[in-house]
Amino acid sequence: IQGTQEKHVDGVKWTESKAIEIEEEEDDDVENLLKEEQAYGEEIDVSADTTGALKWKEDLTQKAAEAFLRQQQSAPNLRKLVYGTVAEDAGEEDEVDEELGGLFHVSRPDKESKQKANALDCSKFPVETPQDWDLDEVMSSIRDCFVTGK
């Protein structure tokens, strides 16, 4: 009987210990969760701290990439547009006209550059695509150019 009792006790103990273990496990889980939450909370705190002084550090690589692309797109293009291909003597043309049978010249139709060479000499910069200044959006696009704006 003792043996069975002991067994029983053992069984109880076992169950008890099992239960404790389970409880402990549950505790662990809770603790882990808590820890995670704390860690999460801390992370939020960190980012909250950085919003003031160190916000510029966020997405640095992305920003750099964007800035680089912007530079690539705008500045060198404008410089290229102005100083790029056109040399100071636009004089080398026509001399290379093909000759047919050594007597006739092939007269090529005027290229764009040549039309420009004899175009009207005027400093005005006409507006090519006028905007509709009756629209509110268009009107507000220059609102801040005035003292009455922001």
Partner: peptide
């Protein structure tokens, strides 16, 4: 001297 072609930008 510099050499140019055409009447544009004469001024």
């Amino acid at each position: 001297s510099l050499s140019y072609v055409g009447c544009n930008f004469l001024r």
